[in-house]
Structure formats: C-alpha cells, structure tokens
Amino acid sequence: MENPDGLPPENGFPAQQRPQVVGFLLVPGFALMSYAAAVEPLRAANLISGKTLYRWWHSAPGGEPVIASNGVAILPDVGIGAAREVDTLFVCAGGNPAVFDDRNVFAWLRRLARRGVTLGGISGGPYILAKAGLLDDRRMTLHWEHQPAFSEAFPDIAVSPSLFEIDGNRITCSGGISALDMMVALIERDHGRQLAASVGDWFLHTHIREGMGPQRMDLRFRLGVADKKLLRVLHGMEDNIEVPRSRADLAALAGVSVRQLERLFRRHLGRGVHHQYRSLRLERARQLLRETALPVLDVAIATGFGSSSQFARAYRRAFDEPPSQTRCSV
C-alpha cells in the first residue's frame, strides 16, 4: 500500500519489495500467548524464506512498558499517534476490555482507518475496535469469554463464534492459539501455501484450523458427557440464558420424560437439571459483572432472574460474595 505518512521506504527497500509492516498495540493486561502466537509466525516467515517479508513494532497507551496478564513487560517503540509506517495494526487486549476508554487511542485508530490501514483485534482487541466505531457492518469475532458482555454493549454487531474473521481491511481473532491459525492464513494469502505450511510446521502445528472452526472444546469433552440426549439439552441451556426453558421443554428437546431427564443429569453430571442450569446462568452473570457496567438488575434480567434480590441470594450462595463485590474486585 502507499505510505500514508508520506515517509520514504525504510531500510532502502524499493516500494514493490518493501516488507509488510505490522504494528501491535498492546493494551495493559493483554494475553501474552495471543500476542506471541501472532508475532512469532512473522519471524518464522522471514527466517524460513530467507527474506525480510515482515517488520513489526509495538505501541502502548501512555508509551510506558506495558504489562501482560502474566506480569511480563514489553517496551513499546512507537508512541500513540506517531507517524510510523504501517500496513496492518493489531490491537491485543485481554482482561476487561470493556473498561478501556482512552480517547487518544480511539482517535488514532480512526485516523489509521481513514488512511486505509488494515485494523485487527486479537482476543479482547475487537472490543476496543468496536468502541472506536470501527466494526459496524463487519463480520467479526472475539474471545468467547468477552462475547456476552460485547453483545450487551453492541447489540447491533453480530458476533461469530469462529476462530478468526478476515473481512476486507478488518481482521478479528478470538485469541490464544487461534492467532497462529490466523497468521498462517494471512501468510498464505500474502506469500503462498508452501511458506504458510512451512510456518505451521515450524511451530509443530500440524493441523492448521480454518477461521470458521469452533472456539470452544466440544461439550462432550468439556463436561465429559457422551449421551446425545443430554448433550442436546446442555446446548439448549447454553442457547437460552436470558429466558430459561422449563424442565418440560428441555425434556421434550431430549425426547424423554422430566423424570428421565433428571436421572440423566444426576447420573452423568452429579446434579439435577435446575442446579446445572442455574450454575450456567450464574457463571454468565459473573462474566457480565466483570466485563460490563450494566446495573445489577440488568445483569439479573439478562441471566433469567426475576428480581435483583433473587439474583443476589443465588449469587452469594454460589460464589460466597454479593454481586457488588465481584464488580468492585475487578
């Protein structure tokens, strides 16, 4: 792409041979694994090809060393808003991206978008792109942990449960190891299948996943359940959090009686239908308390409770603290 900053090509590369420049905006609390899975394939592509196909730099709000979620610090080399050559900028975020509110960062991202820079978000990074108004009418994804809060904050933006999405000059990724799958796909797009396969092989990643692959482990493995009838009900529960389905509806979904359904749950999960469903709803509530500013009553309604008092009692029994304490501890 044409250099939007009007700067000469760096390192003496002719324009047609210029390496692609990738920027990483690291937000405090970013997941180190997601970032490493995105940057390391660029290094491998250079090494395997014997060419400088990619260069990269780092930026962070405030320009200070930025601390990852595991405590590792990375020193940024580009300030927010700096006139630095870039083709693609990835926002790497974790923790609670819903509370990020740096107007200088949002303005910078919008300026880059106007100049035609491809913008990407990894893990919680898409949340920040959305807060900057840069994901409207775009196909997108983000880490499953952030999806409930994101959908509450941006009800008009459809979230895909995929590993990554490439929609023109917007790229979003659910994070973790899926960032490696995404970068291999981008390397294949830019430099061919052979180099992309070699990069995957370099990292012992022998099965490169397509972007539309599922983010989460199948319920069969996540809960250690193989019974097909029970699995249909569990999926039905996950899909109906705000308006919980009755035990009779769930039993009909499995094609069994309510009594048979209760026996299935106790045999395979060691708890009854009501207990399992309430636990699932309360876990969703805890996510919303941690990642949104929704009033407690709204969280209660979004997770199928009729009142804030009913919700608070159930929440305290489950987590040994009131909802307000969960929010304050974040």
Rank of each mutant, 00 (worst) to 15 (best):
N104P: 02
P76G: 03
R84V: 14
F265K: 03
F90N: 03
L89P: 00
P97H: 04
D320P: 12
G168R: 04
Q215N: 13
F203M: 14
A132Q: 08
R317T: 08
D102G: 05
G12K: 03
R114N: 11
R55G: 12
N169L: 14
W108N: 05
S123N: 04
P244G: 07
G168A: 15
G79Q: 12
Q17R: 13
I171A: 12
Q260A: 15
A248F: 07
I301T: 06
D167Y: 08
A285M: 07
S69C: 03
S257F: 11
A312P: 01
G236W: 01
L297Y: 07
D137F: 05
F30K: 03
E188N: 06
N96T: 12
Q276T: 15
L163K: 10
E145T: 12
I208G: 10
R18F: 13
V91E: 04
H205Q: 15
D136A: 08
H191D: 08
G133K: 08
E85P: 00
V256G: 01
A179L: 09
R286N: 06
R222W: 14
I80H: 05
S59A: 11
L134V: 12
K229N: 05
L112D: 01
F311H: 04
P244A: 09
M217A: 11
L47A: 09
E188L: 08
R271G: 05
F203N: 15
L32T: 11
F319S: 07
L109I: 14
V21M: 04
A248L: 14
P295E: 05
V105S: 01
T52N: 12
R138K: 13
R284T: 15
I208V: 15
D227G: 06
R266E: 09
E321C: 13
E238G: 03
I48D: 02
D5A: 07
L32G: 02
R245I: 09
F106D: 00
Q287P: 00
R222C: 13
S198K: 15
V243M: 03
P155L: 15
G63V: 11
F154I: 13
P148I: 11
V296W: 06
S69H: 04
A45K: 10
S257W: 00
S329Q: 06
R115V: 00
A153F: 09
E152N: 03
P76K: 07
W57D: 12
R266P: 03
G125K: 09
R266C: 08
G168P: 13
G176T: 15
D137Q: 10
G62N: 11
L230G: 00
L42P: 02
L204G: 05
G81V: 08
L135G: 07
A252T: 14
Q276I: 04
T118I: 12
L231Q: 00
A132Y: 03
E238K: 04
A179K: 10
V78E: 02
V72S: 09
P126S: 13
R281W: 09
E242V: 12
D201P: 02
F311A: 01
R316K: 12
V233R: 02
I208E: 09
A93F: 11
Y277G: 00
A318G: 10
G94E: 09
P126I: 15
P214Y: 06
W144M: 01
E291V: 02
I122C: 08
P19V: 04
L26W: 01
H235M: 06
Q147G: 05
E283N: 08
C328A: 12
D201G: 15
R110A: 15
M140C: 10
E321Y: 14
F154Y: 04
C173H: 01
P65F: 12
W57S: 14
M140G: 00
D167T: 15
G168H: 08
